[in-house]
């Protein structure tokens, strides 16, 4: 390389090497969590069988009850999945856990419907009357729980279609989840089927206490910690393409264990206990200092309000989370990065880290945008490319007449198999491919890369919208 490089500004090592972030260590931790999940799901059944349960009932009645226990075990697990527990998010990625939570919730509600349906069809006597004024309270609690969980799923799946506001949806979700789980536990202990043994009752009471502890941690202790460590908005600047960057300065403790490319939940002006918080990528790198920058495109809900945040406003941060980081790829010989629009932000954070470290590894960035004039962070990319081995290919669908993307390359069109094959070097197939952008672009790029022989394990993407 004969590019004019500025000297390395600080004594950063060129690569982040941490045994805990090595691929085998990440896979071992993920396997450990899955094993723990299986054990947690089997525990209620083991406790039932270890006791002295009544035998001889018809299979349909026994199965109806055991399906109910299975549903409850799956639901109890949901609180751990959505509690933003860092040890749990680290191997999987905090963006994928809500996806997992969604699929698992469908299963839980399916088992719950099985429990209800089998009793309804074959054992009406167990159900009693529907009228809550005459029915035992624990039976009404069971019906309330079923209703809560059905509403939870429906309100989450249809939130956008029915135009439910994000903040109100979060309030509804939390309220229904708390009510539903409490009602379900009341139902199980009140009905008393297969819970006569002290061990079984202790298990469910223990699960309830653990659940209450988790809620206390997520909704009270963590916000209290955030309240003691506020941040201040020190700059709000235009980055092009409608993107605004908020620069925040720590007023208490800065972020710990922060890797480039991670994101954090940002709450502005409302206090750390507010449910009005959103996940945003931190678009700068830890190597640049304790200040953090969120680059926000006002796409809807609260992001327009956040983009107008005045300088001096107090903010609260929960994070960092996420695994979209070059620091998980210490052994990679180079990187392919593919960004669409505002999806550049986590990629930019990684590039900032490489620039600060003068990481010598080659990076090929394919950056797709609608128009040339509105490309965000174009100047940042030019500056970074002076310091590291970065090749940028701007992909513009409708470029202006006679456009000159120098010093970078420019291509008219969209990110597709042909474009990737033409602009990525042959020896990059085994490099990590880090992608962030709109879902259709990611799907097209993933298919194209697979067709070019890139292994699945080398394709990493960040999910944009969690809900």
């Amino acid at each position: 390389m004969d590019r004019p490089q500025t000297p390395r500004p600080a004594a950063h090592p060129a690569r982040h090497v941490d045994a805990a972030d090595a691929p085998w260590a990440v896979r071992a931790r993920a396997a450990g969590w899955v094993a723990l999940a299986v054990a947690a799901l089997l525990l209620p059944f083991a406790v039932i069988l270890a006791g002295d349960p009544p035998r001889g009932d018809p299979l349909t009645r026994n199965l109806a009850f055991t399906l109910g226990f299975g549903a409850l075990a799956l639901i109890a697990m949901q609180f751990a999945l959505t509690g933003r527990l860092k040890p749990l998010t680290r191997p999987f990625g905090a963006d994928i856990l809500p996806v997992f939570h969604r699929f698992l919730s469908w299963g839980a509600v399916a088992l719950m419907l099985g429990h209800f349906g089998m009793l309804y069809v074959w054992h009406q006597d167990d159900m009693g009357v529907l009228n809550p004024l005459r029915a035992p309270l624990h039976m009404t609690a069971g019906r309330v729980a079923l209703l809560c969980f059905l509403t939870l799923i429906a309100s989450s799946e249809l939130r956008k279609r029915v135009g439910l506001d994000y903040l109100w949806w979060r309030r509804l979700h939390l309220g229904l989840a708390l009510t539903g789980f409490a009602a379900a536990i009341w139902h199980v202990l009140g009905a008393g089927h297969l819970t006569a043994e002290p061990a079984t009752r202790a298990l469910w009471l223990g699960a309830t206490l653990a659940w209450a502890g988790l809620i206390l941690h997520t909704r009270v202790l963590r916000p209290m910690h955030q309240a003691r460590n506020p941040w201040r908005v020190v700059e709000n600047r235009d980055e092009g393409d409608g993107i605004r960057s908020l620069v925040l300065e720590p007023q208490g403790r800065p972020l710990r264990d922060w890797l480039p490319g991670q994101f954090a939940w940002l709450s502005v002006g409302q206090g750390p206990f507010s449910l009005r918080e959103h996940p945003f990528t931190i678009s700068t790198a830890p190597d640049k200092g304790p200040e953090i920058r969120f680059s926000i495109k006002p796409l809807g809900d609260d992001s327009a309000r956040l983009a107008r945040t005045p300088v001096g406003t107090t903010a609260w941060i929960d994070g960092p989370y996420g695994v979209f980081s070059i620091d998980r790829e210490a052994d990679a010989p180079g990187f392919v990065m593919i960004a669409g629009g505002v999806g550049i932000t986590p990629i930019l954070a990684n590039l900032h880290a490489m620039q600060e470290r003068r990481d010598p590894r080659p990076v090929h960035l394919i950056y797709a945008n609608d128009s040339w004039e509105e490309i965000a962070f174009r100047r940042d990319l030019e500056r970074i490319a002076r310091d590291i081995d970065l090749t940028v290919t701007h992909v513009i669908e409708n470029p202006p007449e006679g456009w000159d993307p120098a010093p970078h390359r420019g291509v008219r069109g969209r990110v597709d198999a042909d474009l990737l094959a033409r602009h990525l070097p042959q020896d990059s197939r085994d490099w990590p491919h880090m992608m962030c952008g709109p879902a259709p672009m990611l799907a097209a790029a993933r298919k194209a890369l697979r067709g070019m022989g890139v292994p699945l394990s080398a394709i990493h993407s960040e999910i944009f919208e969690m809900v």
């Binding site: 299986v38 699929f103 299963g107």
Partner: peptide, 30 residues
């Protein structure tokens, strides 16, 4: 981890729970 892997893992855990529920019910029925 990709969404498809999350789906496969979720289905596996649901299947494990279902299998445990059926096995327990069969043992109780005798």
């Amino acid at each position: 981890m990709r969404p498809r892997l999350a789906l496969i893992l979720a289905l596996t855990l649901i299947a494990v729970t279902l299998a445990a529920a059926v096995t327990t019910a069969l043992i109780l029925t005798g």
